[in-house]
Amino acid sequence: MNFNLREIASASMILFAVIDIIGSIPIIISLRNKVGHIQSGKATLVAAAIMVAFLFIGEEILKLIGIDVNSFAVAGAFVLFFLAIEMILGIALYKDDEPESASIVPIAFPLIAGAGTMTALLSLRAEFHVENIIVAIIINIIFVYIVLKSSKAIERVLGRNGINIIRKVFGVILLAIAVKLFTSNINQLF
């Protein structure tokens, strides 16, 4: 076992920034108002299962189509870069249609375990040990569950401006992470 506190902390922060559950509180509140009760436990368990499964079979899928993890990490750095730009500037480069149901589909996937999270997981796999990434996923899933359960209270405490500030701060962190992923993996390709 290669448990490393620094790797766990780094992977946790990266996933926290990518999942952006705090920035998703307005979306969660809107879904809750639209469809009623959201099953927080079910949504977080499904999201965790998707992330862990993709962590293990994602690389095999890439090998099947002939792409190495470093190439995917460089591509992932671009995706994370654009996610960070969205967070910092408050613009939407990619937008899904509003879902009609808030069961598993809009919350667990793609809100929690979406394309950015999948990209981040495979990018992390290129740099960190798998067991540290799994611990980071568990830490984030616990936090996601707490946020889903108490999203209305969090919104009242932080207010709209507080949520926007947190979103922008994590956008800058995510931007720095994207640059680091790009520079550390681009050298491996040449």
Rank of each mutant, 00 (worst) to 15 (best):
35 V>C: 13
177 I>P: 02
91 I>L: 11
129 H>V: 14
10 S>C: 09
103 S>G: 14
101 S>F: 11
167 R>E: 08
64 L>G: 12
148 L>F: 08
118 M>H: 07
81 F>D: 04
13 M>N: 11
139 I>K: 01
136 A>Y: 07
61 I>M: 15
144 V>G: 04
11 A>M: 09
137 I>G: 00
30 S>G: 15
113 A>Q: 00
96 D>N: 08
123 S>L: 02
135 V>F: 09
2 N>I: 07
33 N>D: 13
55 L>G: 01
138 I>T: 11
47 A>L: 10
92 A>I: 09
13 M>T: 12
110 P>G: 11
55 L>E: 10
153 A>I: 13
113 A>G: 09
187 N>S: 12
125 R>I: 06
125 R>G: 04
178 A>G: 05
5 L>K: 06
11 A>I: 08
143 F>L: 15
159 G>L: 14
89 L>I: 06
13 M>Q: 10
5 L>V: 15
104 I>F: 08
47 A>R: 01
88 I>G: 02
169 V>K: 11
134 I>M: 04
75 A>W: 07
119 T>R: 07
152 K>V: 06
176 A>N: 10
163 I>P: 10
29 I>D: 14
74 V>T: 07
23 G>P: 09
74 V>W: 09
138 I>F: 14
100 E>T: 14
167 R>D: 11
99 P>H: 12
139 I>H: 05
119 T>E: 01
97 D>R: 05
86 E>M: 03
49 A>V: 15
112 I>Q: 05
77 A>C: 03
160 R>W: 11
30 S>C: 05
10 S>I: 09
36 G>E: 00
6 R>M: 15
104 I>E: 00
124 L>K: 01
54 F>V: 06
12 S>L: 12
151 S>L: 04
109 F>E: 06
150 S>N: 14
171 G>R: 03
102 A>F: 05
31 L>P: 13
52 V>K: 13
177 I>N: 09
116 G>H: 09
7 E>C: 13
120 A>D: 11
27 I>Q: 04
103 S>C: 05
111 L>N: 03
124 L>I: 07
144 V>A: 14
2 N>Y: 11
181 L>N: 07
174 L>D: 00
164 N>A: 15
161 N>T: 15
174 L>F: 06
151 S>K: 10
169 V>G: 06
46 V>T: 15
43 A>L: 07
56 F>V: 07
44 T>H: 04
126 A>H: 04
